[in-house]
Design a protein around this nucleic acid. Structure first.
Lengths: 151, 151
DNA sequence: CTACAATCTCAACCTCACTTGAAGTCAAGG
DNA sequence: CCTTGACTTCAAGTGAGGTTGAGATTGTAG
């Protein structure tokens, strides 16, 4: 008995991802499905793994497009090898670490502002003194920093 | 010589926020401006502080609406007191900390997955075993966790 | 065979935080 | 006065990551 293919509802239930999202992922090329004679989607079980990888990436804050790019390097019909997953999770991990570092900086700056007598807008790291110096170029941007993301 | 009011362009340059964004903030009720006879905006200098607070909140990942709610509790025409800012920055700090904790968990889960032989989908914390158990309710959601945000 | 739930497609809508464009007005230098 | 650049409003667009709804079709249990 070959493993029965899964309907979209079954995949939705098992993965916790809404059917609409699964269709969306397919549209974006992240997953793939066979079709019945009546045009309904039938999924191989390996799609569950793929969806789980997508979930992990989303949890890590990786944009869907980048997740898709990563998945594109993985075998289509088969679950990824341990090595594949190692590569992926390592990359995502360092991405998450960068995001954590950014937030930690913001946290520390907020913390230091509590005691810094910030109202003078003098030497505060959070409110950088672009107001006083007004040098060339816009300031205060340094806080936001573009989200580092692997293509 | 009373401090000259600032044009929108000047506020934009000094704060690093685009004029369109400043108009947007005004529309959303986060900042306010006087008008000239010719209907142009003229800002008091205290708006720079307010905008800086908005920037700080944005950096901390606080939604604009929540920043607006917080600002609404602050004196309108005057810079916030030290106490005001302490209250705000403390609240935002703990919000940031919650976000950091979430990311740290994801990071650790990604890390543990590197070595966990995850491909068996057996006991992995990242890929939680909803696939095997398929209990009531959707799974894998636990990773995402709603962003805690103060109203 | 008949219900009825599940699925299909396609287009429209949603939130967030803005940006862009069109068409017109204001302010300041020469 | 005239030009030029900064400013005005309002509507619409952007992009991410989907959801919602309409209307039609399929799959399955009884």
């Amino acid at each position: 008995m070959a493993a029965a293919p899964l309907t979209i509802g079954q995949v939705a239930q098992r993965s916790g991802v809404a059917p609409s999202a699964l269709r969306f992922y397919e549209n974006e090329g992240l997953i793939h499905a066979q079709r019945t004679d009546g045009n309904q989607r039938r999924y191989e079980r390996s799609v569950l793994r793929r969806v789980a990888v997508i979930q992990a990436g989303r949890a890590a804050g990786i944009p869907l497009a980048a997740i898709g790019a990563a998945l594109a390097l993985l075998p289509a019909g088969k679950p990824p090898s341990k090595r594949d997953w190692e590569r992926l999770s390592r990359a995502w991990r360092s991405d998450v670490e960068a995001r954590i570092a950014l937030l930690e900086r913001v946290r520390d700056d907020l913390g230091s502002c509590i005691g810094c007598g910030c109202l003078s807008l003098q030497s505060c790291r959070l409110f950088n003194p672009v107001d006083r110096a007004a040098k060339a170029g816009p300031g205060a941007r340094f806080l936001l920093g573009d989200t580092p993301v692997q293509g």
